[in-house]
């Protein structure tokens, strides 16, 4: 424990003053499968977005929902819930 802040350098009571600092956390490396969207099937309905437990989808300029692979844990809810079967889970590394 030689490295790291001293007791004087921590905020009082370890209170965190940067809201949402968890965003810096790479939870994408938990993934064994990743969602891949087929733009031809996707109708931009946003079902994938509202059902993501990790807020790992975001709307692009064209209104499509893109996967934020830094945070996506690869649960596959988006693929399962997509009414258009527009999302496929493919194994990482493929």
């Amino acid at each position: 424990m030689a490295d790291g802040p001293t007791w004087k350098e921590y905020p009082m009571a370890a209170t965190i003053s940067e809201p949402g600092s968890a965003t810096g956390q790479n939870t994408g490396d938990w993934r064994s499968e990743r969602p891949v969207r087929n733009p031809e099937k996707c109708d931009k309905c946003g079902i994938c977005w509202i059902y993501c437990p990790d807020a790992a989808l975001f709307m692009d300029e064209e209104g499509f929902y893109e996967v934020d692979l830094y945070h996506c844990k690869g649960c596959g809810i988006c693929a399962r819930e997509c009414g258009k079967d527009a999302i496929e889970m493919i194994e990482e590394g493929e």
Binding site: M1, G4, T6, W7, Y10, A13, A14
Partner: peptide, 9 residues
């Protein structure tokens, strides 16, 4: 990694 420092504080 920080509990001890917070208690010291």
């Amino acid at each position: 990694e920080l509990y001890t420092e917070i208690k010291k504080q």
